[in-house]
Design a protein around this nucleic acid. Structure first.
Ligand code: SF4
Ligand code: SF4
Lengths: 136, 136
DNA sequence: ACGATACAGGACTGAAAGAGTCCGATTTGC
DNA sequence: GCAAATCGGACTCTTTCAGTCCTGTATCGT
């Protein structure tokens, strides 16, 4: 459908929320409940998303009571590419541009692979140029 | 999933095939069966795709025996945007950037809409710059 | 120590979109 | 008239996505 998943959308909203809180000091951590309530995002789903962002090193977490999440870096350092890679399973624009593929059952006839890779590259560059800082 | 649908992929393959045949003279028309066989694309599905491309004015059709499809314009005139618009149901990158929307239930809190529209615009421009001519 | 709070993470369900198929109708060249 | 082709709707099957639930673990405050 050529659309970003809800995960990414929610991820962006959450990161924007965190960015408004300022850098990670541990004091400024926001809980999933807070974000979920403030931003009208389903709690459980958002919880998963935050975990994934954490796993990917985009944000840091603080466990236990008084815990929560906070940004690891400056908003201008967090690119859309990074977020998409963390939250989206498949990021290649077509099967052609999947990693390390041999061509499918159309080799010899269709010469789409090259241009598609170029297009994919251009798109990734475009996504790299968009950061959380631009969401504020 | 941030991936072009098979429809678009097949559409590109088919258009590339047509482009190799040269401009529409009626003599150079290729049948769906031909393309399907040559390119290993499921017949019925491809038939649908060609109909949609025709409806959108990208290619012209010739009915009856000796019929088929042929390009309406120069390959360099057919942009990816055009193809995607013809074959893909939803083309907005997020719900935010859907046409004419009021914001969803997050107004006031989330300020994603503006940047998202900008991003969408950039992507459309990128797609406009890619044409069938580049597939040859 | 204990209990409340909050992250960690797996498993599951239901809905929606996508891919692919089937069948009948219409057009048209031979 | 017949065969080859485009038209076009309806349908099934599969996969992906969104969302929920439930159990575990860490940690702060008292
Ligand atoms: S370039 Fe053509 S043959 Fe190769 S993977 Fe893409 S579609 Fe398949
Ligand atoms: S900008 Fe925020 S509130 Fe507006 S439509 Fe997008 S997600 Fe919803």
């Amino acid at each position: 459908m050529l659309r970003l998943s809800k995960r990414v959308e929610y991820g962006l909203v959450a990161l924007q929320f965190l960015a408004k809180r300022g850098q990670a000091t541990g004091q400024s951590a926001a809980t999933v409940r807070e974000i979920s309530d403030e931003c009208n995002v389903p709690y459980d789903l958002l919880a998963k998303i935050m975990q994934e962002l954490k796993r990917d090193g985009l944000i840091s977490s603080f466990q236990g009571v008084r815990g929560g999440y906070a940004l690891m870096m400056a908003p201008s350092q967090i690119s859309l590419t990074r977020i998409v890679n963390a939250l989206e399973k498949e990021t290649s624009i077509t099967e052609c541009t999947s990693t390390s593929d041999e061509c499918c059952h159309r080799e010899g006839v269709c010469t789409i692979k090259g241009p598609m890779h170029a297009f994919q590259g251009a798109m990734e560059q475009l996504m790299s140029s968009m950061t959380v800082a631009q969401l504020l």
